[in-house]
């Protein structure tokens, strides 16, 4: 923040401007993604898009940054608010190597890590099914799941730091020392004012982290206490209540069925339906649990559900109608 307007050094950007640039870039990345998606749809069809959504996103991100940051050009978001990359000292432009490192770690690395994690998980699940013992892989997975939690905390602290000091918006930028500076001279006092409201956000994040860690500590403590209390009798009682629950559920559902069948062969049921429209067009019998489609045509619940699950339309008028649109008459 200590930039001297009289020196040759460009003033460092503030948090608000960086966030604006980032939002703009995110918007253009999503447009990029749509174009890529259209391209792949023509090339490989809809199925390809559905099976590789993550890959397309990563590709869009990497392409967008390669065509701008890697070539030494500004992204559209940076151009929009007039930002340029400088190195940590703010005296010169970042070199090519840090830029490559940033793009790889920002766009591609998280994807690769999550892929490795997934393959580890699935392979070890198979293994544990085979022998049931704890293998090195399972241990690694625990490490990984902890890694995600730790990463989450680090990222939160990092973003809070950003809100306070306005240095690096993403962790990769911090690691590779890519800082933003304004492309023009700015009144440093004005900049100071604008970043003021962002430190409040940073404060909230820190507070949230603090509360979270307190809760985690408490639940950990509770578990320790419970472990001490838990004995064989407790588990037995547990089983007992469960069986009881299932029994009540069964009786409930039995009661439900007998209470709620509406059979139109009984003339006292739904007397407002005229006699010539009490038959179901599908089973040709008096309707049981009559249910209306969106268009108002009425069928037995069982008959129409069987049909609509395969063909979401009314059998009589072919108006679109999904299963959840069926309305049981009462």
């Amino acid at each position: 923040m200590s930039s001297n307007p009289n020196s040759r050094q460009l003033p460092f950007a503030d948090a608000a401007t960086i966030v604006r640039a980032h939002q703009k870039d995110a918007y253009f990345e999503s447009i990029y993604r749509t174009y890529l998606q259209d391209f792949f749809q023509i090339l490989h069809g809809q199925r390809f898009i559905n099976s590789y959504p993550q890959e397309i996103t990563v590709l869009a991100k990497a392409l967008y940054l390669s065509l701008t940051t890697l070539l030494g050009a500004r992204t559209l978001g940076e151009e929009y608010v007039d930002l340029i990359y400088v190195n940590k000292t703010g005296k010169r432009l970042p070199r090519l190597l840090p830029r490559i490192g940033f793009i790889l770690s920002y766009a591609v690395l998280p994807y690769i890590v999550s892929k490795i994690f997934k393959s580890f998980k699935s392979s070890s699940e198979e293994e544990s099914k085979k022998d049931g013992s704890i293998s090195i892989k399972q241990w690694l997975i625990r490490m990984f799941s902890n890694y995600y939690k730790v990463l989450d905390v680090i990222l939160n602290v990092h973003i809070a730091l950003f809100y306070f000091k306005g240095e690096f918006y993403s962790l990769s930028k911090r690691i590779f020392g890519l800082r933003y500076a304004f492309g023009h001279n700015k009144d440093p006092q004005k900049v100071q004012q604008q970043s003021g409201n962002y430190s409040l956000l940073g404060g909230i994040i820190i507070l949230q982290l603090f509360v979270k860690s307190l809760m985690a500590l408490k639940s950990y403590n509770d578990e320790l206490v419970k472990k001490g209390e838990k004995t064989n009798t407790a588990t037995q009682r547990d089983n007992g209540t469960r069986i009881h629950d299932i029994n009540t559920l069964q009786t409930l559902s039995e009661n439900f069925e007998t209470d709620h069948i509406i059979d139109l062969s009984d003339e006292s049921q739904l007397p407002y339906l005229p006699e010539n429209s009490r038959n179901c067009m599908l089973c040709l019998s008096p309707m049981v649990n009559p249910s209306a489609a969106i268009c108002g045509h009425i069928f037995c619940w069982d008959c129409i559900v069987d049909w609509i699950r395969e063909h979401p339309e009314c059998p009589l008028c072919r108006q679109q109608c999904a299963e959840q649109n069926l309305l049981p008459l009462r």
Partner: peptide, 13 residues
């Protein structure tokens, strides 16, 4: 369901 429906149709015819 098929059987019941077919008998209904048969009776109708």
């Amino acid at each position: 369901m098929a059987e019941r429906r077919l008998f209904q149709e048969y009776n109708r015819y």
